[in-house]
Design a protein around this nucleic acid. Structure first.
Length: 862
DNA sequence: AGCACGCCGACT
DNA sequence: GTCGGCGTGCTC
């Protein structure tokens, strides 16, 4: 390849020593397909400036490349070396986008993620598409020509010639056909980010037509034929010339326009075409410009005393006084680091193990303990990556840690979906060039090319938010383990409470935050359940009060009296979990899924929380024609309504997926009650918080998932440390007041108590961390088809030597029908990752009669 | 994922 | 006679 702008890694070929051919490259494209092999670009193995021996150049691992894909060029990531050249004739990589000395992704990370994808039996492209959030959209100028001496007439009439031409002039498929024959020369040049601005065009470049004006000037000597009035007008004109128009002249001279016309016709004045003075707004733009837009020009000029309307600005620009030019865009604004905390250089008392944990206390306290370690590593010139599961944790981490970077001689960079694409791209560049060595972000930061990575911190490693909802269903902490291990970096698990899986690692624990806990035990009411009014019938066990117990109501009234703040956590959004006919017990169901429809009172709708299907509330019961419904299982709407009845006149706010009230007053310290779902924890705690109520804790336990109680315990711990200083009263209403996940809090035990107990249970039951799980999901439109395919799969597994302990199921999904399909689940349970991967190879042994999907390390029932 | 190919029901 | 449903297969 040659040309004016040869791409970075390619130089003119030198007289080559005998060389082995380079291996193919394995390239992941952002599609749910495996990584495919491509040949290196033409000439790649001939031209390594750094090396003269008979070795092929290595694959540019972690670099982005352009590869031909279905007749077009797509961005791919080099994730490994391909198999030795097989029978398949490989297409060539067209271009390497990144300089191999600063790859887009750290080569070790590229391998770690790809290896995980292989172990999970997922296509590499699917995993990379999920995890690499920035870089797939490369902006480049692309020019083509025919290879010198080649004739492209066989490809048609509109084909590249011998001169370089912009590739957009040709159909991608045509170019690819020529490319495949080796007859296309191509050059690529990266395009920087630009913006369009308005500048004042230099006078010499303003079109002459724009500058010319017709003006009136007096003629001297004055013709003798002028009337007295015409003469006076001409005298005035000679003192005030040039005049732009007859009417302006007449007005100025104080005569009628007839007199002026007459004077002109009599030869007392002439119309001349002259070069005008540039308009003042042009001069303004030349001095103060460039302007971002027409309106910016108009307002800017007007503000500094040069009146300019938007239409005038438009006219001037159209006539050529201003030009639109592309200028390099300035770097986007990125989040500012927090001020430096004191104590960063304090002694570091944290474990030195390869994997360790730090839990308990409050977030700020954990970051204070963590800071000396991070500071030390940064000061040594190494890199640190901090991963948070959601925005609230990310914000706290940024506040608590980002200040360390400046003091340790580097920068902190934030990477999350909160930022714009442009911001993320800019930040990625800073990280890639080693300018920012402290990276704090969401899962999108996991593949960031952090220089000399020494430590990966996973915050709240047990959080379900780490389970990616999209195709790969990856659990981010699993990948963080791999990323850290391949780079010999340590892994720290830091959060309010350790995941049960973290317990085997060494660690530190901070004392639990102060807690005032009150448990309302619904299971121990006086005998004789008593029938109440409609909204509080069956579920009311005795007279404890439902859904707000008398105890909770009493504290809520105190909150109102004292002008404080309270938060109520409801287990679901909407008004109620379901509607039931009091006559025949019929419950409206979703038409696509086997679940009851949720009742939303505000929209008067029944909605499926699985698939989004909704309908208006039926007038009468399908089964018996009854006209009234009974609501069961209170949600946020119901709770908020009860609070409104209990505390008349007291502000009630709501926060869930359906409704996000403006919480400015509450965050400013004004009194009120906030009712919401778990989404509440994504907000800072209101400053005057005196009470947190959990309206029905049992909902977190009634989930068919072995992690349900762990999740419930984590929720309680997070609520307990939510407020950064205070210890609000935590009121938990439950039918299971003796549940150990709750009891350890009541007993003031530390963050390890419950996970440690749970780990012992898991050991007996052969569950994580003592086993590795993978769920195989088999789905089909007919239940029987899915069931039979799942059974065949199970038989194949047993045939391949799986034991009865290793294969659980198949069983229908907890929701038997979802979005119109029937999922069946098969759980694999192995001693080790390698055994699990070995069992999973059975999936690839043949094709199955239903859709099969693997979820390694599944979490959550639904 | 997208896009082709391919085989069976309701219509200009 | 065709248009169009989505099942299956392929992408280096």
């Amino acid at each position: 390849m040659s040309g004016p702008a040869a791409p970075a890694p390619l130089t003119e070929s030198q007289p080559a020593a005998p060389r082995l051919p380079a291996s193919p490259w394995r390239v992941a494209v952002p599609l749910p397909v495996p990584a495919y092999d491509f040949a290196p670009p033409h000439g790649w193995d001939l031209t390594d400036p750094a090396d003269s021996g008979p070795m092929p150049r290595l694959a540019p691992l972690g670099c982005r490349v352009l590869v031909p894909w279905r007749g077009e060029l797509v961005v791919g990531l080099v994730v490994g070396e391909g198999d030795a050249w097989g029978a398949h004739r490989l297409r060539e990589t067209v271009h390497v986008l990144d300089d191999p000395s600063t790859p887009w992704v750290t080569p070790a990370t590229a391998q770690a993620i790809t290896a995980w994808a292989a172990d999970a039996h997922l296509p590499a492209g699917l995993v990379w598409c999920d995890l690499l959030g920035v870089g797939w959209e490369a902006a480049y100028a692309h020019r083509v020509r025919a290879v010198p001496g080649a004739s492209l007439t066989a490809f048609g009439s509109r084909v590249p010639g011998n001169e370089w031409q912009d590739a957009v002039a040709f159909a991608p498929a045509l170019l690819d056909a020529i490319r495949e024959q080796g007859l296309l020369d191509e050059v690529f040049a990266p395009l920087g980010r630009t913006r369009t601005v308005l500048t004042a065009r230099p006078l010499s470049e303003v079109p002459p037509a724009a500058r010319q004006v017709t003006v009136l000037r007096a003629v001297s000597p004055r013709p003798a034929t002028l009337t007295p009035k015409q003469l006076a007008a001409c005298e005035w004109l000679s003192a005030h010339e040039p005049q732009p128009s007859l009417s302006a002249w007449a007005r100025g001279a104080g005569v009628s326009s007839g007199v002026a016309t007459g004077a002109l016709n009599a030869g007392g004045a002439v119309l001349l075409t002259e070069l005008a003075d540039p308009p003042p707004s042009w001069a303004w733009l030349r001095e103060h410009g460039p302007a971002e837009s027409l309106s910016a020009w108009a307002t800017g000029a007007s503000l500094s005393g040069t009146p300019l309307s938007l239409t005038q600005a438009g006219t001037l620009a159209a006539r050529g006084w201003a030009a639109q030019v592309q200028v390099p865009a300035p770097p986007p604004a990125v989040p500012a680091p927090a001020p430096l905390m004191p104590g960063a250089a304090d002694p570091d008392r944290l474990p030195e193990a390869l994997v360790w944990r730090l839990h308990g206390g409050r977030a700020a306290a954990r970051f204070r303990v963590l800071a000396p370690r991070i500071w030390r590593l940064l000061a040594q010139g190494r890199g640190v990556l901090v991963i948070a599961p959601e925005h609230a944790t990310l914000r706290l981490a940024w506040e608590g840690l980002s200040g360390l970077a400046a003091d340790a001689g580097t920068q902190a960079a934030q990477l999350s979906g909160q930022l714009s694409d442009v911001q993320r791209e800019h930040t990625w560049g800073q990280i890639r060039l080693g300018e920012a060595r402290l990276v704090i972000g969401s899962y999108l930061a996991l593949t960031a090319p952090v220089a000399d990575l020494a430590l990966v911190v996973v915050l709240e490693e047990g959080s379900d938010a780490y389970k990616l909802p999209s195709g790969s269903r990856a659990f981010v902490p699993d990948l963080a383990v791999r990323v850290a291990a391949t780079q010999d970096a340590a892994l720290a698990l830091v959060g309010s409470v350790p995941a049960v899986e973290s317990m085997p690692h060494p660690g530190a624990v901070l004392p639990p935050p102060r807690l005032r806990l009150h448990v309302v035990d619904y299971a121990r009411p006086p005998e004789q359940p008593e029938m109440g009014p409609l909204s509080s019938v069956h579920l009311t066990p005795g007279d404890l009060g439902y859904p707000l117990s008398h105890d909770l109501s009493r504290v809520l009234r105190q909150v109102q009296e004292r002008g404080r703040q309270a938060v109520l956590v409801a287990p679901r959004r909407g008004y109620s979990a379901l509607l039931r006919c009091p006559g025949c017990e019929h419950t409206p169901q979703c038409r696509n899924c086997d679940v009851a429809l949720r009742f939303h009172q505000e929209t008067r709708r029944l909605t499926c929380h699985q698939c989004g299907y909704h309908e208006v509330i039926p007038d009468r019961c399908d089964g018996c024609g009854e006209r009234f419904w009974k609501a069961r299982g209170p949600g946020t709407e119901w709770i908020a309504q009860e609070v409104g009845k209990l505390l008349p006149g007291f502000p009630v706010y709501r926060l869930d997926k359906d409704r996000q009230d403006d919480l400015a007053a509450l965050q400013g310290g004004e009194p009120g009650v906030l009712v919401g779902t778990q989404l509440l924890l994504s907000q800072p705690a209101p400053p005057n918080l005196a009470l947190i109520g959990v309206t029905l804790a049992d909902t977190w336990l009634n989930v068919s998932d072995f992690r349900a109680s762990e999740r419930y315990h984590r929720l309680l711990r997070q609520l307990a440390e939510w407020h950064p200083e205070r210890a609000p009263m935590l009121v938990v209403q439950t039918f299971q007041a003796d549940h150990p996940a709750l009891r350890v809090l009541a007993e003031g035990r530390d963050a390890l108590a419950y996970p440690a107990a749970e780990e012992r249970v898991r050991q007996e039951l052969f569950y994580p961390p003592h086993a590795r799980l993978a769920q195989i999901e088999v789905t089909a439109r007919e239940a029987k088809k899915a069931m039979l395919a799942a059974q065949e799969l199970a038989d194949a597994l047993f045939g391949a030597g799986a034991s009865a302990q290793e294969v659980l199921g198949p069983a229908p999904s907890p929701v038997a029908r979802l979005r119109g399909v029937y999922p069946y689940h098969l759980m694999l349970r192995a001693r080790s990752d390698s055994r699990l991967s070995q069992l999973l190879t059975v999936l690839d042994s043949r094709t199955w009669k239903a859709r099969v999907r693997v979820d390694v390390h599944p979490r959550g029932g639904l």
